[in-house]
């Protein structure tokens, strides 16, 4: 117990961004479910669901700007980019760990440091998430917010149904991501270890 060392890996702006983003995505998924499956759910009226979805959408966009500004401003954005030389082997090691080693009690092959806090699979996932999926979701959401205003761009992509398809597929992806991400967060040294760290900023190093 005493050998555990605390590492400051989640600076305050990152924690603020993370929890606003988390709450925002949860609410966007709930209101999104209401908007799409109006005949099945009755959490809100459609008008309320759409208005709420729009407000939260803009909050998440502003929050993304905070994340982007922080990581770009501090140069820490590089933690999202894997080392091309070791990336494939790191991924294989990590897959072996999650698929087998973790059940046998093997140690995690990735050692978290403030400058290298993501393992290879996390880097791959978050790179796609933060630089492709989330921007695509925000952009398509923006287009769907004012179809007439963005008609030219919508037409450029093939019409409102194409934009909606991208938005909806990403919506399902984010809904699934929330579940998987929350589960993976329990795979720390203790089930609540990573959750606590996302509030305090400190991860325990073993």
């Amino acid at each position: 117990m005493t050998e555990n060392k605390l590492l400051y890996v989640h600076p305050a702006p990152v924690r603020v961004w993370h929890w606003i983003n988390a709450a925002g995505i949860v609410l966007l998924v709930i209101t999104g479910v209401q908007i799409r499956f109006i005949e099945m759910f009755d959490f809100f009226s459609l008008e309320e669901a759409i208005n709420l979805h729009n407000y939260i959408g803009f909050l998440v966009i502003a929050d993304y700007a905070l994340w982007f500004a922080f990581y770009m401003g501090t140069g820490k954005i590089k933690i999202y980019f894997p080392n091309p030389k070791t990336f494939i082997q790191d991924c294989i090691n990590q897959i072996k760990y999650y698929g087998g080693g973790i059940f046998k009690g093997d140690p995690n092959p990735h050692h978290m440091t403030p400058t290298n806090k993501f393992n290879a699979l996390q880097k791959k996932a978050y790179l796609g998430l933060m630089f492709l999926f989330l921007p695509a979701q925000m952009l398509t959401g923006l287009f769907l917010w004012r179809v007439k205003k963005f008609q030219v761009y919508i037409d450029m992509f093939g019409g409102v149904k194409i934009i909606d398809t991208v938005h909806v597929l990403l919506f399902f992806f984010f809904a699934a991501f929330l579940i998987v991400h929350s589960y993976l967060a329990t795979l720390g040294h203790t089930p609540l270890g990573h959750f606590k760290a996302m509030f305090t900023g400190y991860e325990e190093e073993h």
Binding site: F37, D164, L169, A175
Partner: peptide, 20 residues
Amino acid sequence: VNHFYAIGGTRVRLLDKIGV
């Protein structure tokens, strides 16, 4: 009919299956 879409009303059902 890509340029007519009423949210919830004329949605592509295949997407719901993929989503599930």
